[in-house]
């Protein structure tokens, strides 16, 4: 049976509805299953980031709804929504967005602290994650002492720390050189393969698209194609519904 993690129903997002309306997403419908490695691509302004923000509960749709493992995200408000994000959604941002005054270890630990995880379990989990992203030797380094690729790997570890349902990665390789990007994608692929971690990327980086097993193309706020690598000959409009 399919294990649907993200279920988006007829979702639209219009900015400035009362002044000069800008339709960022228009009646989008999609679902993502557990263990997918999916890319949302499209030109600038196509609505990629808006889609990720809405799925991440950082923004509210004008109409439609987002279900995460059956929980309607649009019905959650305030601290309930924050708590839901804390336990279910991992974020990787384009600009790494690590806390500059904390070390790699502390950046990862911080999110576990927010979850109220006991210190000993936190320590074990952080060390395990640092090993997974191959940064054990950088545990005590602050972001300014690490390369962009290393910082983004810490960001991935931080996103993984609370064992979320899925990870949203908004242009994660945009600021990375080829080697760092490849290294980062290798790690993400391994996590996806070994731990069935679901990844949803927004990108126009061909290096990411090459690795994706599913590519969703957005144009003018609408999904224009949704292609799976195992099924590249099939234009899976059925999944768009």
């Amino acid at each position: 049976m399919e294990d649907i993690v993200i279920d988006v129903h007829q979702m639209s997002r219009t900015y400035n509805p009362d002044k000069v309306p800008v339709v960022a997403l228009n009646n989008v419908h999609l679902h993502i299953e557990r263990g997918e490695f999916t890319v949302v691509k499209g030109p600038s302004g196509s609505g990629k980031t808006t889609l990720l923000n809405l799925i991440g509960g950082l923004d509210t749709p004008t109409s439609g709804e987002v279900l995460i493992h059956g929980v309607n995200l649009t019905s959650l408000k305030g601290n309930k929504l924050v708590d839901f994000r804390l336990h279910n959604i991992g974020f990787v941002f384009q600009a790494y967005n690590l806390i500059p005054v904390l070390t790699a270890y502390e950046n990862i630990e911080f999110i576990l602290l927010l979850q109220g995880v006991p210190q000993e379990i936190r320590r074990k989990r952080v060390l395990e994650l640092l090993e997974q992203v191959q940064l054990t030797d950088k545990a005590d380094a602050r972001p300014e002492e690490m390369s962009g690729g290393q910082q983004q790997r810490v960001a991935v570890a931080r996103a993984l720390a609370p064992k979320p349902q899925f990870i949203l990665a908004d242009e994660p390789t945009a600021n990375l050189d080829t080697r760092s990007a490849d290294n980062l994608l290798d790690i993400m692929e391994k996590l996806n393969r070994d731990e069935k971690m679901t990844f949803l990327f927004s990108t126009h980086d061909p290096r990411v698209m090459q690795r994706a097993r599913r590519v969703i193309t957005l144009e003018d706020g609408q999904i224009v194609s949704d292609t799976s690598r195992e099924d590249t000959t099939h234009d899976s409009k059925a999944r768009i519904t």
């Binding site: 924050v82 974020f91 927010l114 609370p162």
Partner: peptide
């Protein structure tokens, strides 16, 4: 401000 936005996004409550 961007850092605060990130902290709230990853699960830090406004009260915290």
């Amino acid at each position: 401000k961007p850092e605060f936005g990130m902290l709230m996004a990853i699960g830090m409550k406004k009260k915290q």
